[in-house]
Design a protein around this nucleic acid. Structure first.
Lengths: 248, 248
DNA sequence: CGTGTTCTTGATGCCTTTCAAAAAGGGTGG
DNA sequence: CCACCCTTTTTGAAAGGCATCAAGAACACG
């Protein structure tokens, strides 16, 4: 749960927004979003930000760190729906359903911008451009799930793992959170397995295969991609021209 | 492609909106949406409404019939992302990406309400409640894909087929498009297979198993569910209280 | 009634899961 | 700094679910 003792980061000072992937906001928009933002909190790794079935949850923008959305079946099987990185918006579905039908858990220590859900409609009334951004984010997140569904439905284990790794790495690149060919990578193999619809054992064997082929290194919470082209080829991953995106 | 010769259906006369699952619109909203609506067109079964990679596509509300969203991999593998039924909104992702990263194809003859994409932002400016509805629809569609991803990632073939059939049937019920325990069902087994991430042969064997157990009948474009409870039990399908939803 | 599509079924093989257990890594307290 | 414990990774062996190949049957349509 949010820790209220952290210091507030003003949107006007936000370093994330300075990245070229995020669309520049007007001064008016910045001031409004800053007012919309109720808190800036810290949550340690391995905590639920949103519990499945929770009602009346708040809205968040992930400011730093990793998290993931997931669903749990009644017998305990878990499907990780997608991974969240800085700039991603969290909790929209709580505005659609009374109870969240999925959970959100942190993978690393994270910082969150917290917004009161009750004021979301006010944003729609006063700032149509921001409202459009919210829709954009919802639609974009859906397209990520579309991709993941295609992966799990159509790709082999080797293709799936390759796809996920290159995909996450490219996202980290856009955030300038890679060094050389490597980046921080807090997922365990269980997370990979639950995301890819594979057993833990087979996920491990598949990763091992990529390591043996010298395409990647994966150890001590760090992913290195030695041959991104070959990985992309295996995965049928198409590099798309990065789209300038909004951030709330 | 749209056939312009059909007669326009006014939103104020729309019979879909009379269903209790759709939220009632104010007179002002109705008039505005009717103005937003450029055409009412008919498209026969088996046609692409939106081609993958298309730019500058229009927006649609499916007024009658069945359609589906899909992705194609470079070697031809197809993943069906979700099925579209009356009231579903089509084409939002074209507002997010310059080129559509998925296609939309009709399964039956359909009627479409056509909206010019260029006027979407105007809607956001003038009608925040409708803008919120658009976001709602995007978010809701994502939750459907979430469910499908969970199915493909975690459920066995028997569970997946059961889940999809009961899910589609429940949606048809809300639209009052079922009679007794059966409804129109234009999907071929290839569609089911491509949606579920199964081979055609295995999809067939699995369906056969459900038929043999007398849980369903599936023939001549018609699905009958004889034992919805048992089907839901197999699928770990939880009946949710239907949410009142918007329709643009 | 002919032809193309869709559905069925059999046979075979392998990709992936499951079961089991050891090895390696990380964190904590003495 | 090391012993200890829990988590995570790795590997082996065996079983099984699902894919692939192939071909006949049923169905839909003009």
């Amino acid at each position: 749960m949010p820790n209220h003792s952290d210091r507030f980061v003003k949107c006007t000072d936000c370093k994330l927004r300075k990245l070229p992937i995020f669309r520049p906001f007007t001064d008016g928009e910045l001031v409004y979003v800053e007012d919309f933002k109720a808190q800036h909190t810290y949550v340690p790794a391995g905590r639920d930000i949103v519990l499945p079935g929770a009602t009346d949850t708040q809205l968040f923008t992930l400011f730093s760190g990793w998290a993931f959305r997931y669903k749990i079946m009644s017998d305990g099987r878990r499907q990780i729906l997608n991974f969240l990185l800085p700039g991603d918006f969290i909790g929209l579905q709580s505005s659609v359903f009374e109870a969240m039908d999925h959970g959100v858990e942190t993978l690393s220590d994270v910082e969150l911008c917290v917004f009161p859900r009750a004021k979301l409609f006010e944003l729609f009334q006063n700032w149509p451009a921001l409202a459009f951004d919210v829709t954009w984010l919802a639609s974009h997140e859906e397209s990520l799930v579309d991709e993941q569904l295609t992966s799990v439905g159509q790709r082999s284990a080797l293709e799936r793992v390759s796809y996920l790794l290159i995909h996450l790495f490219r996202r980290k690149e856009l955030l300038r959170e890679t060094r050389d060919k490597s980046c921080d990578f807090p997922l365990t193999q269980q997370h990979l397995a639950d995301s890819l619809g594979l057993s833990l054992v087979h996920a491990n064997r598949t990763i091992r295969k990529l390591v043996t082929r010298k395409l990647i290194t994966l150890a001590r919470r760090r992913l290195t991609i030695h041959d991104p082209d070959e990985l992309a080829r295996i995965a049928d991953y198409r590099d798309t021209t990065p789209v300038v995106r909004p951030i709330i």
